[in-house]
Amino acid sequence: MEKFENLTGVAAPLPMMNVDTDMIIPKQFLKTIKRTGLGVNLFDEMRYDREGAENPDFVLNQPQYRDAQILVTGDNFGCGSSREHAPWAIKDFGIRCIIAPSFADIFYNNCFKNGILPIALPQDQVDRLMKDAEKGSNARIEVDLEAQTITTSEGEVIPFEIDAFKKHCLLEGLDDIGQTLEKGAAIDAFEARARAERPWL
């Protein structure tokens, strides 16, 4: 997995709550058997009209946000399905960090598996960053995972919380499966115990 180090970039404001996975990547794009190539269809139904023409009002179609690497958004982002196509599309577009008051559980976990950093902050701090993001491409926000801080374009430093293990994996770009396979002996021991206790399984 790609490492997440420091990130300084443009943040796109998407002030909506309950942005669900169907909005992030509509189901007609789930028929792929690959992980890549979904970025052009990120937020498809808000981003394009039926004929495929860009909707100029949508934030990611505005020139200053086309290369956004950060998304600032509303409560309960990523709710709905467990589909990992949602973080794949976000990553493929180039967004590596999402800041919101809260995230849906499975989506939150899926982000980490794909080198995306989701940051949950109190509403008033998200509001502040939203204002910053609305300034467009001149306002660059800095995210420092190691130090667990966000620095606004005005130099204000906002600390954030993150699970230590998840942070470690992101920083090192660690592959979960490889790590778990190293615990093979513990899995073998568990299976032997479970076979004795619950033989019907």
Partner: peptide, 13 residues
């Protein structure tokens, strides 16, 4: 529910 990376993790481990 789990994501696809976790599907792979469960299949492998």
């Amino acid at each position: 529910g789990i994501g696809t990376s976790e599907v792979e993790h469960v299949l492998a481990t």
